[in-house]
Design a protein around this nucleic acid. Sequence first.
DNA 1: CGTCTGCATGGTA
DNA 2: ATACCATGCAGAC
Length: 882
Amino acid sequence: MATTPTKLCMNYHCKEVKSEPWRRGWRLRNGDFANLCDRCGSAFEEGRFCDAFHSYDSGWRQCVPCGKRLHCGCIASVHTMVVLDYGGVSCITCARKTINILPTPNPVWPPSLFLSLPTSDRVNVKNWSQTPSSGSIGTWRQAPILLESSSQSELHHGMPSEVDISGGIERRIAGEQLSAFLEKKKTEDMTETKMNGSLKLGTSEMLESGTKRGEKPRSCIYASKKSSSKDDLSAHFGPAVPSLPNETNGQSKGSGAHLKLPTPSTPLTKQFNCNPINDVETSGETQVRNGRPRAEGRRTHLLPRYWPRITDEELQQISGDPNSVITPLFEKTLSASDAGRIGRLVLPKKCAEAYFPPISQPEGLPLKVQDFKGKEWVFQFRFWPNNNSRMYVLEGVTPCIQTMQLQAGDTVTFSRLEPEGKLVMGFRKASSVPLFDQGNQTLQTANGVSAPGDVNPADAASMRPNVDKSGYIAKEIAESKSPFPGKRKNSTLGSRSKRLRIENEDLVELKLTWEEAQGLLRPPPNHVPSVMVIDGVEFEEYEEPPILGKPTIFATDDEGKQIQWAQCEDCFKWRSLPVDFLLPSRFTCSDKSSNAERLSCSTAPEITAEQLEELLPVSNQVSFRKMKATRLDPETVEALEGLDTLANLAILGEGETLSSSAQATTKHPRHRPGCSCIVCIQPPSGKGPKHKQTCTCNVCLTVKRRFRTLMLRRERKQSEKEAEIVRKKHHQQLPERLEQEDDPLISNDGDNSSSDHRKPLIEGFEEEMNTRKCSTSPFKGQIDLNIQPEREEELSPGSDSSSMLVKLLQDATERNLKQQKLSNFIGNIDTTSDQAEPSGRGTGEDKLGSDIKPVGNHQDSSVDISAALLLNASSTTTATDR
DNA sequence: CGTCTGCATGGTA
DNA sequence: ATACCATGCAGAC
């Protein structure tokens, strides 16, 4: 970029083919300088470039004070003139003389900023005019634009609210700055920023270097146009300046504040290397673009939690067009209210005022926003008077949020895509961050990208002229399942109400824990269960509460024998173990006693994680990776260990105490007060009466009900599953997204769709489980009220239940068997939840069988079952169902 | 009676 | 002490 791709002189009228050395011309957007041949370069240096080459071009005006001809809107001359407040232009010389008075430096077009787009395009860009106030806005917007674009400082300095007047701003900008700016140009110093920068509207530097310290003029940067006309500027910058002094100000006390706000975002353009953000603050965090504003000023104004976090990569993904620039504006973690059905998304005041179009009426205006898929949404951007302030909200977001499958705790991001100026809305699933990964605040999760979308012409107004709009999006992180990023980047929730926090973080976390824990439940060590039979189903009863074992991976060895792979806690090597080996909560090589040879951590690994991963079905690799990560990450390890505690707490919670001194009852580990599941309502092992098929006791009724539910579900699942498959085929292009969706852990049950999302998968697992069980189940063919619901599938045709249902079940089973085969084994890990679900899910009522154990192992030996689920998968189910 | 709308309240930073 | 904002809630529909 820096240099012209070709070896041609960059003077459009010259194009002399030349080789090095080139003479330096105007600054390009990318920070480099135009390469000019000697002749053109000389003309440029002498300030007669336009006279020499553009004499016949349009755009010539006269300096108001001295009458000198000025080629306005030309990148080659942009730095030599100033746009006056009251109209007209002035050469720099005159501007300097008049200094604070009239002259406004050209807003920036620092050459660097200059966009190749035709002026016209940009200029028209947004008519914010939609708003009633638009008219006036236009005017002063320009100013703001300039300010912002050029420099934040300016804004801060003074222009604030009253900015209305273009004049004000411009004045400041005046000559001095210009000159300063020019000087800088020469030196190319980006460093200097300060005020000058701000004033230097015109200076390209600002833009480029823009970021100098905190204040990088983000928005401005990109807006370059050939024409210097205000319009143009406004188009670009305008938005940026959210400031809205006038418009907004009505309420807010400091409209000025608004102005300031705008600044924060720096345009992160792809094009420009200068990522304000990066430049400034992040020396280290190069990749994450936190919206953190470079500008300190901004920071102070925009709470960290709203700083957009987005990586360069993400940005790039968002904008497919290499020429487009995405400027992250801000992000917000959805509150319960935001994600609720009301469809109102509360916008941080400062963000709204800084990046959205100014609105003077509560009704606000329609705002077009594109989502990462490029779909355009129109929200009503408005505000409510609140105290002496305003509360900004986006109305009508429900469809969008549902489409993105967002829920409380997830984060939506707003970015602006330049030069289109479109607002882009992205998102980041809270779940994407590994549960235990709290420490990492990186954006792994982020994704959403937004495609460019135009601001709607009509609504364009809504978007601010200059403001950046970028919606950025979050990609979903594939693996992340965990619901909450521990700390979430900014603890967006942090400030939120406890309620929210609990719901989203803790709750989710707890939920996850449960899901994961479910699959890891193990009988207490060294405890021999007493087996009770309830209606034909064996239940293992332990005196001690279960413990959480370590996740393992089930596979088949070379000989076709079922085995499970477990990772040593100490050396992280993977060891093969008999499929029926129950891992303790902390497994180490030395525990591999199952094999004759006793191992130690020093023993060479039998397989590497990578190899192991390869052995897994694709569908399980994600889980595996997660597991792997979990183990390797010290934090996670700790967390894992804490899982035990957590799980136990959860188990113990709710009043029931499954203390070590466990009560001898049939209550399952997850029993909760009031639990009426088939297990809990049963008398202690073996003491209950045997049920007949005609029995109408609670247990039997429950089982029957569950069976019915199961059958219905199966039908539904089947159809959904098929639909899902079809859908996937169509959407393979969005792997990430899909992946996320697939992530079972992510599911939150919120009201949203996310839950729906998982359903298919879960169900699939369920089916699998059912299938297996069925195949092995001894009870085929009949509805045996004594069996666990999960096993109901086993029923074979001819059972008491409708033969049709049975048939359906069988069909589904067969199908599933074929499809899932071995993959089923992998159940422990993440899939754990899935597994669990299956069983549990079968019945709508969780509890039933849920809790108890996996009878399966006793009955059939379907390895998977026994191995993976010592406990009851069902319990998991329970959790999910609920 | 459910939903929508706009404002009020109160917790948190 | 103040501003922000998540949620509540009453009135309207």
